[in-house]
Amino acid sequence: MVRVVELSSELSGKKIFERISLEIPRGKITAVMGPSGTGKTTLLRHMTGQLHGVSGKVWVDGLDVAALERKQLYALRERIGFLFQNSALLTDYSVFENVAFPLRQHTRLPEILIRNLVLLKLQAVGLRGAAQLLPSELSGGMARRVALARAIVFDPMLILYDEPFVGLDPIALNQVLKLIRTLNRELGITSILVAHEFAAVRQVADWVHLIAEGRCVASGTPQQLAHADSPWAAQFFGGKIDGPVPFQYPASALDEALGFVGPSS
């Protein structure tokens, strides 16, 4: 479904990816994991054509995303659902109107059909009763579920979840996990999860890619990675402070920063 081939990318002059390659199989749930700031969300933005790499290609459903014209890109996006980390609901629209928004923009369905579709999607995320609330009246977890209802309202072929488990209570977390599984197994939707919570990821993901230092450093099933010998996987999944992933953001020596010694000449 998605193929990233030798992608190199920069953001504000900072190198994010260095010839990264990975594949996302059709109809599976694939998690992209890695330390903070390694470009997991950036990778999703490459898949949706919001960012273009310096070199390399990103193929989605057989299409070279960077080479698409605006019309073709928008047609592709209509088949992709995206769940934002912060939900990104339209704040002036009610929950109902937020979920109905893509339908109203891209279809000429009769109002009664739009209403029924929206209510069904809201029922699926357990928020049919909140249809008339405004996003400001929702908790973080509820907003995430509304955003999920909006992302699936078109029954997309591919859903990209950006940190779907952050801030969810255990009940909401289990609901979201169940939804991701249901959407994938019953509707055959390919899912890509960007997440840090390995405990949650191993419950749903068929495959995991671990990204660090601009490349894919380990891939496998959650069970394989949990017991992998790779120092990256061992540190990340073991939660160890010492290892190839530095805890400190690159900086000069501490004693030099504190003024105890002069910069070496």
Binding site: Q50, Y74, R77, E78, F84, A88, L90, F101, P102
Partner: peptide, 8 residues
């Protein structure tokens, strides 16, 4: 960004 990703 959400609008862009909803092809709007």
């Amino acid at each position: 960004s959400a609008m862009e990703l909803m092809a709007v």
